[in-house]
Write a protein that binds this DNA or RNA. Sequence first.
DNA 1: ATCAAAGCCCTTTTT
DNA 2: GGGCTTTGAT
Length: 992
Amino acid sequence: MSTASAENPILQSLNAAQRRAVTSNASTVAILAGPGSGKTHTLTSRVVWLVQQTGYQPSDIVVATFTVKAAREMKERIGKVLGPESEKKIVLGTFHSIARRYLSAYGKHIGLDSKFGIADDGDSRAIIQRICKRHDFNIDPGYARSWISKKKAKGHVTDAPSNKKQPENPSLNECYREYQEHLERSNLLDYDDLLVRCVELLRTYPACVSNIQAVLIDEYQDTNGIQYDLMKLFGQARQRITIVGDPDQSIYGWRSAEIRNLYRLLRDFPQTEEISLEENYRSSRSILDVSLTVIQQDKKRYQKVLLPVHTKGTRPVLRKLRSSAAEGDWIVSEIKRAVTMFGEMLKYEDVAILLRSASLSRHIESALGKAGLAYRMIGGHKFYERKEIKVLLDYLRVVNQPDNNDSVARIINVPRRGIGDTTVKRLIEEAEQQKMSLWSLLRKHCQGSRKATTKILPKMEQKLNAELIRMVLNLQSHAQQITENSHQTLINFIEKLLSQLDFKQYLESEYPEDHEQRWQNVQEFLSLANDFVRDSANADEELLPEIEDVDQAKDDSTLGRFLANIALASDAQKNDEGAEKKSVITISTIHAAKGLEWPIVFIPAVYAGSIPHSRAEDLDEERRLLYVAMTRAQVLLYLSCPLYGSQGMSGKVELSPFVAPFESTAFAKQGTSFNRPILEAAAKILGRDLLSEKAIFDKIPPMFSMEDNLFPIDPIDARDPEGLGDSQGYRSKGSKRQRVNNQGYGSDEELAEERQWKKEYSTTMEQASSFTMASLPGFVSAGTHQNTLSAAAAEEEKAAAAKKAIKMGTTRRKADQSSLLGFVTTTSSNKPAAPMTGFKGPDMSLARYQLAASRSAARLATEAKAPELPKLPAVDPLLAKHKLVSGNALNRPSVIKQEAEDGSSKKRYHCFSSSPPRPTDDDAKAIKQEQVTPTEPTPVPDRPATSFHRTTFVSATARGGVRRPVGLGPPPGIDRVRRPFKPLTIMRPAKQ
DNA sequence: ATCAAAGCCCTTTTT
DNA sequence: GGGCTTTGAT
């Protein structure tokens, strides 16, 4: 076996530690792995290994992940190696979706109606709110909700001597009870219930998991108590469990994730083999170093080794801007600068902007909108939460489950039927008082069999209700005919709903402003439904394996599964196969970015109150959050911070305490100069090809500012020390630029676009790109030069000491030492971790570069006469003309790279990368289209659903870039109470 | 008394 | 966008 395994192609893409993890024969394996160490790759490979080498049936393996995205990705990766048949059979998904599958198949064993629906957040909140109001409980409904959730998520914790403390408001318990009762009456499970009930199922009826050979858990540090129980129960037959996690990336404590679960695992399974993955293949060394200095401020964390395999790269930047608006503009300018200066090596899709909270996106979105750059938003407001979509969903839910009071309540008056809020509220109260559903109350009332005590104005209402009721009944009978074998019916069904509601017209009258956009969203919804039908038809992923003597229910309706799928998918995900990939910038919350990577990462709003968030309870978790965000970056990392709130917000913004101590030592004050060595280093890290200097240079537009010099480095200036002056102060007004001929940009069309782009450029960056020395290509202002030089000198000085300090900051131990105890260092090295060493100053190639640049500038200057151009939406000519040099879109580090050259098969294991998809061939058209008309409709049937947020995008541009002048300035007070730390010292329990 | 629209506040993170 | 209150219309 060992010889066979040595040749196994799976293993070739693994380093020693990863290989040990993949091939371990131990029944319980705990893999501890820092960011970028190939966690998911390792877990995926282990699944493959278990199937191919150990001979487990795919259907006997359970893989649980934390997010939908991670599940999807892992599925894809496994499918690539094992083939679609096995991919389908493996029970793989988020904890919640797996639990849902088991409950719908076996729920009857615990007395659960298998047609249960899922109560989403809004439902839960509405129910609890009503309960609180009804009883005049003196509780904040939000608090009650999270209290209940926490209670459920805890699971069967046996370690704590759980003293029956009841210091809480007793009404909480009452609220809990009633809430639960209500859910039950409506046959709903909330998110936590899915897990709770599944635990109950697996406990009372272990037979349904008697086939399970192996259980694998991703992102283990984010599991909570109930998920731990679930994990054990899934594995109860053979107790073969593999977990992968990183305590430093635990960012879901607020959702009751317990780092302690790691400890629990070791206690419950003393034979666990521990393996740590220590090489980081993702990021440049300086990014890693800075990230470590941040995370090492937490003296109580598990210390662990993280070895960079890449070169130093460029120093991360911490940039201060005057306002958040300036911050957005600066980000745009840096994105353009990087994309341009890297030639064609980096594209917009290589850029991510990561935010602590989704609401911070406003300024970013408007800056991008102003610049005409397309983006997509992950996290934050969701597609399914848009009003027009939510209404449709509620209709579907009512058809599927008429007893869902909340859904009924939301649709009663939605095409206006003259029934106001107060009436609806009364009706729902009456129904709940009578312990009957709102729906049956309405039906009875309309049939006249039982008069509602709430008065409903006789004529209008009764008639309209009959209309509503008849429609729903009609749809219900239609819904029953929806089956798997006829693809179209779900679509037809929704279309029928749309026409019966006269939905298009409804939107037109209700939203005269943006009904087109909303109708567009409806079309997208249809296309999502289409995707769902297609996917579930050819991959019956829902089906659990048949187990002898165990029967499962299969009466799951298509509609029901569709709705469940939506409830469990945090957002509409694009599901395009082979469709043109779009080169767009990604904006994401940090939480949603976990597990992903991008060559360029921006982290705006790094101020106290944003991160750490002013309402955060656990400061360490906030720090870990920043760490997670920083470690997403591969080559360029930018943090930034606005110094003033945009609306006379009192006071200055404080830089986040997580970075303030190293502000000057660890970070560069402004974006790097992209000289040749820097570009080459980046190319090496990414494993991509770099254009020649000349090729890059030839494409740099005239007047392009090659340095990060369009915004003051220190935005506090003497004239306006408070920064309260004009919000546009960073721009010089009305400086007219001279224009330059467009040389060689092909067709007229492209020419036009090029102009637009140029024009746009001048709006964003007018200040310094007017004719000043500083901005002329080829000239470096004295100040800049001075900065570079002195920085370089300082670096040099520090370098030696830094090196040493880094060495000491990490625990010394052999790379393949496996004990978890290795993570517990005895002490915290008291000195703030090592200062970073950045790139060493200017060198010959920079000089050459600059010489070339200045020559060209001179040439251009003589040609410069063209008049100012009209203002139009922008497109980047580089992108429009884009051609990828080679097909090398794979960007795994060189370590893994060699063996894939066998060329025989397209299955290259090293493409197990979590970076966003990247077009592999020239796709200029698609890109262009995306840039120019991001909102352009495409015919429904073919168009893959995307999560591109059209509405947001459009509103950002349509109103001249600013949606609302809301400042993202600092929230008022930052009064955080330090919560007691979790006992982080991990000690292996003494073996009995 | 009820409904509807308009103006005001606030907005952590996600299954 | 949602929740809240105020104001005007029915």
